[in-house]
């Protein structure tokens, strides 16, 4: 029997694929009947839903995207701030990620200024996190008896977040599909306990599973013919418009001001948030202050894309955002959710 290039998860009695011997290849989800258009290899949304479902099964809270512009899922307070402090935390969510500099006016097959990351955070990192990750790949149709899945060294560091961790890029048949990190420090604070973070590049993975070479050709809704909606139908125009905006028309003067405003607001909220007049024991406004840090970071990315920040200034802007992030981390560990019970 000729096997398809991508193994399908036998969730449908009609297309039973021989189950591999490897226990990881077994479907994790109950054998319910998913309609074809919802299967991960057929639609982008089905693909996301399969991940949501898988991580929900692992006890994660399934959050919705954070309602602010940010460069990566790591910026979501559910990761940055919740990674700090002793309390256990398990969450998973999709986060739209804005990288103004990566815009290509919709002309590059896989580079965009807006794309989706799927983010999983588990604190403390469970002993079987690698196995869970591999099972999640099986859940989206990547059979580890058919594909070459590898953990290749990748030390993660975010200068703007004052964060670092050790882990890997996860490769599937030579393609980087995820990042796997054990956070050691976030916002300048040691992680105790350590959280494990998984980040999936959703479009890239979905392209692989759907077998398309151009992101805009991804089937978004899993329908065919007139009902089919592609990724390009949803996002191509946005890529063109935002590339134009990010590189040519964004109002640099306003953005410079916004950066300073966000920076000042962040500091103001942090200073005002200490209970009982700043005895540095209990903080009541870490989250609103952190929003301003996210804001400053994104404004910086916009300015950077606009090419109005020189090489030397660049380092100092990054340091300013990092200082905000660190101060927010410090405040967070003095809040209800961030400190020891």
């Amino acid at each position: 029997m000729k096997l398809p290039a991508i193994a399908l998860i036998p969730r449908f009695p009609a297309d039973t694929v021989p189950r591999a011997q490897n226990p990881l290849a077994r479907p994790i989800l109950p054998m319910d009947e998913l309609p074809a258009h919802m299967r991960p290899e057929r639609s982008f949304q089905g693909f996301i839903l399969a991940l949501q479902r898988f991580w929900a099964e692992q006890g994660c809270v399934i959050l919705q995207p954070y309602d602010m512009e940010m460069g990566a899922g790591t910026f979501h307070p559910a990761t940055t701030l919740r990674a700090l402090g002793p309390r256990p935390w398990r969450a998973a969510y999709v986060q739209p990620s804005r990288r103004p500099k990566d815009g290509r006016y919709g002309e590059n097959p896989n580079r965009m200024q807006h794309y989706y990351q799927y983010q999983v955070i588990m604190k403390p990192s469970p002993p079987d996190l690698q196995d869970l990750y591999l099972k999640s790949l099986a859940a989206i149709g990547l059979d580890s008896s058919l594909h070459d899945i590898r953990f290749v060294e990748d030390d993660w560091e975010s200068p703007t977040l004052g964060a670092w961790g050790l882990g890997w890029e996860c490769w599937c048949d030579g393609m980087e599909v995820s990042q796997f990190t054990y956070f050691q420090q976030v916002a300048g604070v040691e992680c105790a306990p350590v959280a494990g973070e998984l980040t999936y590049g959703l479009e890239r993975l979905a392209m692989y599973v759907q077998g398309v070479d151009r992101v805009y050709d991804l089937n978004f809704n899993g329908r065919e013919g007139a009902d089919k909606v592609t990724y390009g139908d949803v996002f191509l125009q946005a890529e063109q418009e935002y590339s134009r905006h990010n590189f040519e028309y964004s109002d640099a003067e306003m953005l410079f001001k916004q950066f300073v405003m966000a920076e000042e607001a962040c500091k103001k909220y942090l200073a005002a948030g200490w209970k009982n007049g700043g005895n540095q024991k209990e903080h009541l406004m870490a989250l609103p202050a952190y929003d301003q840090c996210i804001k400053a970071s994104h404004v910086f990315n916009l300015l950077d894309a606009r090419g109005v920040i020189s090489v030397t200034e660049r380092a100092s802007y990054i340091a300013r955002v990092r200082d905000l992030a660190k101060a927010c981390g410090e405040a967070w560990v003095h809040t209800e959710a961030g400190r020891a019970a």
């Binding site: 096997l3 290039a5 070459d148």
Partner: peptide, 25 residues
């Protein structure tokens, strides 16, 4: 020439195809 870490059940067809795609890109 690539070095995989498994003897794939399809003899490596999917692995080769995947690597070819990445290398093409």
């Amino acid at each position: 020439i690539l070095t995989a870490n498994i003897e794939a059940s399809d003899g490596g067809k999917a692995i080769i195809a995947g690597n070819e795609r990445v290398i093409r890109a």
